[in-house]
Design a protein around this nucleic acid. Structure first.
Length: 760
DNA sequence: GACCTGCTGATTTTT
DNA sequence: TCAGCAGGTC
């Protein structure tokens, strides 16, 4: 054997090390279409990363590789792990990202061909809804008859299915649909003139671009020699189409997915994409990854027995060499409060036996379920992090600031102006705004332009005119500054100039001060962004924020229990998992009742939940639950009847199969129930006094995990306020707050997560 | 035009 | 239960 071959073998060792035979096959098969059916916990990401490494190793330039994921977090993980194999220098140039962020990046370069400026705004669902409200107003339609949210959803569905407003109008039958068609048309016109795209447009416009301009299509076909798509089962028709267009020249397309984990049908994901991959690419190879490395034998058996009830699925057999492990614990509770207390108590017990909080996750069907859980965890002094839910970036004050920023980049963005105009109040009320909007429409100019010519807009009162003109002046001044000066400092001055900070300071309530601090933190965030990305402009920052979700930012590295919806949990794993609320009407959701395909999707969601667990799984359900502020009786979920009873252990209730009657505590009156509740309660109360000192420890411990073992009294460094002394820590998880007395800036309240304090 | 109050409807999941 | 909004008052 020659030297070359020896050195190849050596490199190959690096790329193929630790992979099983199926995984090696997938990593080796770099050319041509490939479908990887990857069961839960079968090392999918591992295969993807090693496959990219192999392609690079074979001599392909990294920038010719496109890897599309569903979430930013998955993309980030992919990049990191590729970097671990091939090194940062090579991995940096791989195009790895979400569909939305990669397409936004391309559309910023090519969007002018479709009539967009590079500074286009990206509208989220809120922006979409308020746009529709504006349009209803213009069209003299009432939101009662045409609920903005419903209209938004109809339009979005149409777009995802690639039905434009003309086709929609052709198909429209009822008066309602015909009117929706008009709103749809006006909506599209409005967004284009506002130089804005909604999430769906980021996909649709890629198709438009490629169909309109063959040269551009050729350019990207040539550029991306290798295309890889993660979570292929969750792609929708539009995504499918873009990929198909891009891959058509070389056919080096590799998709990875698991039909059993398809949980986004409601959002337009089309399972046909994965089921019919072979039809689209007859030469496709199919490789199945069926060995599960994550879960214990019992957990896998439970998962398997559940998913088995679904009729529509690809055949695959997941197996594991892992030990059988413990049985799945199923606990019946009186109500949601007791459920939360029991979970918290079990977590305390786990913690006492040496299990770390960060090894534990609580999963639920709806975000609303987190509240009683949070209360119980706080009561037991257990640190926790909520993943998802209301994002920092979706808070009103942050969105207001973002609206101001978008005006700098995209002065055509009327929705941003409408959002920001009265934060703080400027005396430009509904009536005046109506006149401005009317004028803008007649003159075919942007709303901000009408503020410049406020004098010409006749029916508006003098005060409003002055105020409008002043706002226009501020925006224009800072737009000019932005062109020549450092974006971070311009942004800082600009936000101060518009007066939103001052407004919250003047209100002075706790709530207002929180908002004030949040805005301070976003300014810090911006400063950090520009320090780290010296080449970037404000547009880059805004785009990143527009496409960010809270899951991406959640830091699961601290020692806290993770709380999240089952949807958010996809792609994650935890040694110990709780799934709560296994009740009819909650999980499966009431909306899936009577619809087999929706019920199957709920069942896949349960499957996803079960397969997040590595060693230990606990499932809970309640006999009663607070709903709409009322106590309602709950029936046990059908899914619990489906779990293989040989791997389950039932506590406080009986397996529904053996007793199809109500499994409440065997007819026991309330007193027994409250007795049990009492016993749980007393455990908690008893432990409270003696835990007093432990409390501070726990909180400080959680804090220290997150922030380099900080304690009250420490000297700390903040990127903006400089040095100071940490005088108070309160709350836990994302909500954790710190009070720092800065040498030069006095006392500040901050959210720990964003303060990013450094110990000195 | 800003602020207050009382009513209503929401609870699936999110890039 | 509670947030968000419409409608009324100052």
């Amino acid at each position: 054997m020659s030297n070359v071959s020896t050195s190849n073998n050596h490199d190959n060792l690096h790329i193929f090390k630790g992979l099983n035979s199926q995984q090696i096959k997938a990593v080796e098969a770099t050319g041509g279409p490939l479908l990887i059916i990857a069961g839960a916990g079968s090392g999918k990401t591992r295969v993807l990363t090693h496959r990219v490494a192999n392609i690079i190793h074979q001599g392909t330039e990294p920038y010719r590789i496109l890897a599309l994921t569903f979430t930013n977090k998955a993309a980030q993980e992919l990049k990191e792990r590729i970097s671990n194999i091939v090194g940062y220098e090579l991995s940096r140039d791989v195009w790895a990202g979400t569909f939305h962020s990669i397409f936004a990046r391309i559309l910023r370069i090519e969007g002018n061909k479709l009539g967009y400026n590079p500074g286009f705004s990206i509208y989220d669902t809120d922006d979409q809804t308020s746009t529709i409200k504006t349009l209803l107003n213009q069209l003299k339609l009432t939101p009662q008859e045409y609920p903005p949210n419903q209209i938004r959803s109809i339009i979005s569905k149409a777009k995802n299915a690639m039905v434009d407003y003309e086709s929609y109008a052709d198909e429209a039958k009822s008066h309602f649909e015909k009117t929706v068609a008009i709103i749809y048309r006006e909506y599209e016109k409005y967004l284009l003139s506002a130089n804005a795209m909604d999430f769906d447009d980021l996909l649709i416009n890629m198709i438009r671009l490629f169909e309109l301009d063959k040269e551009t299509l050729e350019k990207y076909r040539n550029k991306f020699r290798y295309i890889m798509i993660d979570e292929y089962q969750d792609t929708n028709r539009a995504q499918y189409k873009v990929i198909k267009l891009m891959a058509a020249a070389h056919n080096n397309i590799c998709v990875v997915g698991d039909d059993a984990q398809s949980i986004y049908k409601w959002r337009g994901a089309d399972i046909r994409n994965i089921l019919e991959f072979q039809k689209d690419y007859p030469s496709a190879r199919i490789i199945k990854l069926e060995q599960n490395y994550r879960s214990s034998g019992n957990i896998l058996k439970a998962a398997d027995s559940v998913i088995d009830k679904n009729k529509n699925q690809l055949k695959k057999e997941l197996w594991t060499e892992n030990p059988e492990g413990e049985k799945i614990t199923i606990i019946n509770c009186d109500d949601d409060r007791q459920e939360a207390l029991k979970i918290a108590d079990l977590i305390s017990q786990k913690s006492e036996s040496g299990i770390k909080y960060k090894e534990i996750a609580i999963l639920y069907r709806t975000n609303a379920q987190s509240l009683p859980l949070e209360n119980a965890l706080r009561r037991e002094n257990i640190p926790y992090v909520i993943v998802g839910g209301i994002s920092f970036y979706k808070r009103k004050e942050i969105k207001d600031v973002m609206a101001y920023l978008r005006m700098l980049i995209n002065p055509q963005d009327d929705q941003s102006l409408l959002r920001a105009v009265n934060e703080p109040p400027r005396g430009i009320g509904k009536t005046s705004l109506g006149h401005f909007q009317e004028y803008a429409r007649k003159q075919n100019i942007s709303l901000l332009d009408t503020f410049e010519r406020a004098e010409e807009v006749l029916p508006v009162v003098g005060r409003a005119k002055k105020s409008a003109r002043r706002l226009w002046q501020t925006v224009t001044d800072y737009r000019k500054l932005m062109e020549v000066e450092n974006p971070a400092s311009v942004v800082k001055d600009y936000i101060n100039a518009v007066g939103i900070l001052e407004m919250y300071k003047e209100i002075g309530t706790d709530e207002a001060l929180d908002k004030f601090n949040n805005i301070q933190e976003i300014i810090t965030d911006i400063t950090t962004f520009f320090t780290q990305n010296t080449q970037a402009d404000l547009n880059d920052y805004i785009q990143q924020i527009s496409l960010a979700s809270d899951i991406d930012n959640s830091d699961l590295s601290g020692n806290s229990v993770s709380l999240m919806t089952l949807h958010s949990a996809k792609g994650l794993e935890f040694p110990h998992v709780f799934i709560s609320g296994l009740e009819q009407g909650l999980f499966p959701s009431g909306r899936s009742e009577g619809d087999i395909s929706e019920l199957e999707e709920e069942r896949r969601l349960f499957y996803v939940g079960i397969t997040r667990a590595m060693n230990n799984l606990t499932v809970t359900y309640c006999s009663r639950r607070m709903k709409f502020g009322e106590i309602q009786r709950q029936a046990v979920s059908v899914f619990l009847k489906e779990i293989d009873h040989s791997v389950t252990r039932w506590i406080g209730g009986q397996p529904p199969l053996q007793n199809s009657k109500k499994t409440s505590l065997s007819g026991t009156p309330v007193s027994t129930g409250s007795n049990i509740l009492g016993s749980w309660r007393s455990r908690v109360t008893q432990s409270t006094p003696k835990k007093k000192s432990q409390y501070d420890q726990t909180v400080e411990e959680s804090y220290s995990q997150l922030h380099d073992s900080l304690r009250t009294g420490d000297r700390v460094l903040h990127s903006k306020f400089g040095e100071g002394k940490l005088i108070e820590i309160s709350g836990i998880g994302d909500q954790q707050k710190v009070v720092v007395k800065f040498d030069d800036h006095g006392k500040k309240n901050m959210i720990a997560k964003f303060a990013k304090l450094q110990k000195l």
